[in-house]
Amino acid sequence: MLPLRETQRAFAEAIVEGKYHAATVAMAADGGALRSVALYRRLIRNNYRQALMITYPVLLRFVGGRYFDILARGYLTAHPSISGDLFFYGQSLPTFFDKVQVAPLLVELARLEWACHEVYQAANSPPLSQDQLQALASGDPSQVTFHVHPASRLLSFPVPVHRVWQTLQPDASADVVVELPLPEEETGVVVTRGDGKVRVTPLAMADYLLLKAMARGVDAVSVERMAIESEPDFDFARFMTTVLSLHVIAGLSVEQGV
């Protein structure tokens, strides 16, 4: 009698590596062992594929089902699932794409879709309170740092890949066309959530870089200085209004007694 752990390992070996011997020996000799393992392999692979399809609906529409399946099989081999929660299964798809050198546009699209996937369910955070805004207006701005909302992601791309994302939404008509190639144009986007829906908003590069600085914990005075250094007539009030309207900032910290 195989110990339970050995039985589970033998089954895993059959599923992952196609080494059926140990697992089939542990199964009843009713002639169906090989068929059973093959069936489980198929069911399990389908679970992973379905998880990727849910996480990457735009990528699926972009490349089509057949190529998506090939990518999904390759991904499974390189990045097996390590969590009982399939929400995380596609986390390394952009890294995998990068490594196997698929078209760079697909890498960027996967990065954007993973960010959308995370933001959709990320933790809630209340909007900035009146008191916090007051602290920003009246306090010493060199002591103010910002907390980025957990349901927001800042990303930059060598091409405006968000246009593909916007065009190929799952509810778009079947005959929609994406104009390619995209122009070489470095683009920053912020992924946020509003009314339960994920939004992808392109940002001017200066805005994107300042938001990145804020996310890194750079204080308000330094952020403003960076802005003016990048563009002498930078409209900082306009920038802050944009940031607040996008709900990218969830809180402020004000250093005391420094």
Partner: peptide, 22 residues
């Protein structure tokens, strides 16, 4: 059921052998 071993998850419901150890 079980669905993971050795840190790898199969995200499916796999049967246990019905033994005293299990």
């Amino acid at each position: 059921s079980w669905s993971s071993v050795g840190g790898r998850s199969f995200n499916d419901l796999l049967p246990l052998p019905y033994t005293p150890e299990s």
